[in-house]
Amino acid sequence: MGPVAVASCMLLATSLRSMQIWADLRAILPPDLASALAKCEQAAASPVDAMLVTGLSPEWMEAPPCTAFFGAPLAPDEPSAALLTPSGERVGLRVQASDPAGQAAAMSAVGSVNWVHLDTTSEDEWTMIPAENVISVCHSTPTRLAATALTAGHVPGLAFALELGADALVLSPPEDAEGEALWEAGAIARAQRAEREEPRAAGAAAGSEAEGLAVGVVTSVEA
């Protein structure tokens, strides 16, 4: 396969991403994490892909039930904070979606980190525009976007923005009917994204095989 074909396949591969659901457990103390995570998975009627925490119990530090990310708090006058693995490896950054400096930091980090988390704490601050901007820049790069959704109404826009969508939805544990609806909407969107990616993945595989074929012209025959 020539260089052009390889580049084409790489672009296809980076666009074929399924969507994850992260449980936002930053407000939960380590002894209560198991029950909070169980509540999230019950509301989604399916496993959670990852959890965002500020601490873990000793046993979960050794073997967490799902991928764990530590969300460092934002320091004063800092537009972003690190997103870490339990071992302390920096895998991304978190920014406030409503902060222009944070949005700029997110855009600048695309291509150099695994994850960008666009966070928001209130509906007054929530807006789709920063998410759409980062989604468009992340497309065809190794960087993935995780975005906080506060209500079920936020989910479709984040999951399918620009026909691409965020790579993960970050959802707080359900505390009432609205919280249950948020998790149900997230689980439905994740399933819809998976269904949408299956035929595209099959088409990409077929295309890569076709690109591997070359047509030659015989100009001479030697004995």
Rank of each mutant, 00 (worst) to 15 (best):
G179M: 07
V137P: 01
W115A: 02
A146I: 02
L33E: 09
A81H: 11
A152C: 04
E195R: 15
V217G: 01
A146E: 02
T85E: 06
F69N: 05
R26A: 14
P58C: 13
V116P: 05
P3L: 13
G186W: 01
L11A: 12
P130C: 08
A194F: 04
T143W: 03
L83K: 05
P142M: 01
P199L: 06
P173A: 02
E89L: 14
C138K: 02
G157L: 04
S220D: 09
W126N: 08
I188T: 12
L37M: 09
I129H: 12
V217Q: 08
V215R: 10
V91T: 09
L33M: 11
Q192S: 14
W183N: 08
A106C: 04
L169Y: 05
L182P: 00
K39D: 03
T141A: 01
L12P: 06
M19G: 07
E195P: 00
Q96G: 02
P174K: 09
P156Y: 06
A168N: 04
E89R: 14
D99T: 12
A34S: 13
Q96R: 15
M128G: 01
V53F: 09
G2N: 15
D49F: 06
E222N: 14
A131P: 09
P173Y: 02
G203E: 12
L25Q: 02
D49Y: 08
E211H: 10
V6K: 14
S122C: 15
A147N: 01
G71S: 14
V53P: 07
L145F: 06
